[in-house]
Design a protein around this nucleic acid. Sequence first.
DNA 1: TTGAAAGCGGTACCAT
DNA 2: ATGGTACCGCTTTCAA
Lengths: 321, 321
Amino acid sequence: MVTIKDVAEYSGVSVATVSRALNNSGYVGEKSRIKVEEAVKALGYYPNEVARSLYQKSSKMIGLLLPDISNPYFPLLAKGVEDYAQQNGYMVILGNVEDNPEKEDMYVKFFSQYNISGVLSASAGKKNNTYRVPFILLDRADEEEDYSVSTDDKLGGKLAAQAILKAGGKHAIVMAGPKNVSGANDRLSGALSILDNGGLSYKVMETNSFKVEKAEITAINLFETYESFDSVIASNDVYALAVMKEAIKRGHKIPEDIQIIGYDDMLFSRLMYPGLTTIAQPAYDVGYQGAKMLLDLIEKKTVKNKKLKLKPKLITRNSLR
Amino acid sequence: MVTIKDVAEYSGVSVATVSRALNNSGYVGEKSRIKVEEAVKALGYYPNEVARSLYQKSSKMIGLLLPDISNPYFPLLAKGVEDYAQQNGYMVILGNVEDNPEKEDMYVKFFSQYNISGVLSASAGKKNNTYRVPFILLDRADEEEDYSVSTDDKLGGKLAAQAILKAGGKHAIVMAGPKNVSGANDRLSGALSILDNGGLSYKVMETNSFKVEKAEITAINLFETYESFDSVIASNDVYALAVMKEAIKRGHKIPEDIQIIGYDDMLFSRLMYPGLTTIAQPAYDVGYQGAKMLLDLIEKKTVKNKKLKLKPKLITRNSLR
DNA sequence: TTGAAAGCGGTACCAT
DNA sequence: ATGGTACCGCTTTCAA
């Protein structure tokens, strides 16, 4: 391993001068600078970030806390984070916390042990004030004081309801989604605000999970509990799919007998038959903008908007009439 | 921040003794040990890993290089890695390299700057010998000398072909998959080895991507190019889905007219109608076992099997007769 | 403009 | 069994 000392010897100056030259800090004579640059090139030197981090008590690493990487929404978000971080010389440390407070605590500790310089969290866990570094909430924006980047779910809910209305639904079922997820509540209230003035009847179906495992049983429940509906606003694409499957199985035609709209726009939603009409969430952008906000905070740039709301949009395919 | 020095002062011993007590290295008297433990508890001390890492030239961090997190196979693999790592006190650093050698080089450098102690790579990029730390290939096993964990794709191909045969296929199309991915070749040769003795006719369709964007066009090509086939062995589930969609669109019944088998078993494959019969890849296990092998290597435990092959298995649903 | 030296928070060698 | 201390690689103060 080639160290700053090697560079100093090779170029005939002191390590202090090399350090200054490398960091553009303090005075460095022109000749010294040149000699250092040559030495760096000749030796293939690059600084040891661990040593630097020890002194500076910070690093070029940020943490990303996710509730569940296997949920297809999060990899996209993670990709956005990773892209922005990588473009700006930061590494991202992945923490799959699964809404498990203990795991989250482990990571908080890890992060501080390694001088991580900021954290992005999409985890629904209790907001952890233990962080002494910039902290940004992804996809949630409960508390007033936090920095956050999220989707405008109320708008998303409205969009979905409007699409159903426009397609001529008469009797709709709207799935409520988990009550402890603020986004789910926003969607619901957004949808209802439109439906209430839309001249169609609707019922709200309580569902309390986004989990894939629950999708099939929820779809079955839907058909066993309700009768004579012609439209479904599903919690998300996975649930929409499950409903489609169950509907077809029971001999209903989509969209003729029953029309369905999803939420998320996962990559396979367009691979269904019929293609699923859905509300696209800007998952990648949430990650990307979140990372940007975090690095701005870390580098003490001013962040104009503490709470960034990104807009979802309607993706029209063939599951609505 | 509370340091080892604080602990030493509080407990009235030297930092050397504290260090020994904490690491169970060297002699420590019973009384000293107790005093240290009390001090640690009272002060809420935990070691700074950056300082430790600087001295030891290693850390409790491992790198994970992925070709594309948005491909649903990889998050599962990542979850396996993360789980094992986390259970053993390691953090994982995520690198989405997208088969881009420059990005990969960036990460190689990053990793060494931060004393990462091992690397797991599912990237198809040139094998990077620049690593001076344990290195394990995930999902690929080209070169003889490497450590690797992968799926037995030849077996997977056989399983798929056997299922088609058993379901009574007469004329099959088998998609070849990208030629530069060794797993794809193994699947193909596995499938053909069965088909050749199966008493049915088949054709191999060249496809050269696993990418989602290509799936729809490939499905269309399939129907435009070939006639009178009754069975399809698809490259993966996404492609299988696209084929199903196109088939239904064209008025074919599944599985009555055309039967289809996929590869991967992605979570939504069972949410289709009809449910997709497929070969399940142990993505999570590849990650988990890979992480295990890596940590064993890092901690100098003996690894009995340099090249671990995990078994795929047939998941029977309703897309075969 | 430059270099010596004191840290940053640990580990481990060497005396005692 | 214990403590003093050099050292890991880098940054920054301070004096020259």
